[in-house]
Design a protein around this nucleic acid. Sequence first.
RNA 1: GGCGCCAUGGCCAAGUGGUAAGGCAGAGGACUGCAAAUCCUUUAUCCCCGGUUCGAAUCCGGGUGGCGCCUCCA
Length: 495
Amino acid sequence: MATPFRLYNTLSRSIEPFEPITDGKVGLYVCGMTVYDDIHMGHARAMVVFDTFVRYLRHRGWDVHFVRNFTDVDDKIIARANEHGEDPLVWAHRYIDRFHEDTDALGLLRADDEPRVSGCIHDIQKLTQDLIDRGHAYISEGNVWFAVKSDAEYGKLSGQKVDELRSADTDAGKQNAADFALWKSVKPGEPSWDSPWGPGRPGWHIECSAMSKKHLGNTFDIHGGGLDLVFPHHENEVAQSECGNAAPYARYWMHNGMLTMDSGQKMGKSLGNVFNVRNALSHFPAEALRLYYAQGLYRSSLPWSDQALPDALSMLGRLYDAREKAEAMGGSESAEQVARDLGEDAQLVLELGRNFPERFYDALDNDFNTAKAMADLLSLARAINRFAGHKKARKRGGPVVAPALDAFRLVSEAINLMAMSTAEFHAEVKTKRLKALSLSAEWVEARLDERKAARDAKDWQLSDAIRGELEQRGIMVMDTPTGAQWRVRLGTASD
RNA sequence: GGCGCCAUGGCCAAGUGGUAAGGCAGAGGACUGCAAAUCCUUUAUCCCCGGUUCGAAUCCGGGUGGCGCCUCCA
């Protein structure tokens, strides 16, 4: 059954209890991508945050209707396509396909509806006409403008006042510099559709108002998107929808923070500091990316650096290693019996495991605090590792770590992390990290065979030299009772 | 100029009234042929000033600094 949760609402600038319009249901609209290039780590944050959020709500019993749009008609798409002598819609749709390739590889769910501007022209025109009819929009030279001054509530989301804005563009035909286009008359080389106001194409903001209305109705529960969209995009959406529909728009506004560079500035194409998801995924498992995002609060800025993914991967490795140790433990006594016999480390892992669900739900129900949830999971991993150091843990510890293993399953089901088998995880890491280091598994194995021969001859000098060479190349060698194991170093610098 | 967010140990970071989670890095120790991994120990009174309170990192006021938005932006 759906349980209550609390959410920061940009409208009130405070955390509020979530109250659905319809019991047990959540209508969620998230602003998607303008598709003219591959997505970068900053875009991926928004996608991962809302994917994780949707998964969690569903895990908690909510019936979520998740809508995320594609902007496939836009100035930048047109400019980029024209540069390459291609049709703008063809160009955009190729990048929608690439978006799906990337987000599928990231392990993200598809939205329930993924409307495109080009498929919603009729809905956009209908809303535009409603705005004209209600006196909130005017026609000028084939353009239709939203009249900001006609909306007394304009600015309520962002706190902006129309007269205090830095002088915007003074397009001929606009009554107020802050008025924005609902419909733009056609220009040469641009896609266009017929309309009551002449051929043209939609303005940027109207699409989201029209698409959310189409799939979720006039009033719906949660509207999401990047923090950089609050003004003007979301402000304008509120104005259009509430004026055009004469009904409230989204009840909760949920904004994710930006990825920032060393300078504190956000990752963005104009700054030339973007890192593509495609690159990241060729060298790191998708879960490492998702853990990187989950480490922080969704609405805070998150620092990006070359070390971000190596760090996240080594953290992920710690979690998988701990889980593997727990899985290897046997025994069939009662947990209480084992905990009594094996001491406080056993008590601790039992207790943390049993408490985990409550702590996990508390963290995520309180404005989706994944950072807290991840910290608790790491604490549990440490408790497992500590307990695993006991001689009798492997033979008798199973009952004591069972709740911890349940905790890992819970995380996997609720937010899709720790969702692989240990073998799958290590296989993926090996493949991707070897590729990043330009090494082959065969080469590593051959070196290890040589080292084994040296070790058998107790030629420690040669043995260590071989290991040293491997380490220099980023391969860690671990001597165990059953022979040497190897792994690609997780925490190495960028590639 | 306007609007908004933020300021916690070397770095990242959770914490929203009762004396500071977690990660990375560093130092010491256990383990190891030596290592790696792992574990243990170790590093903070929370930007500054004032106020409220028995008590504040947490609330209020002022200051300083950073960032986002006001043009496209996840």
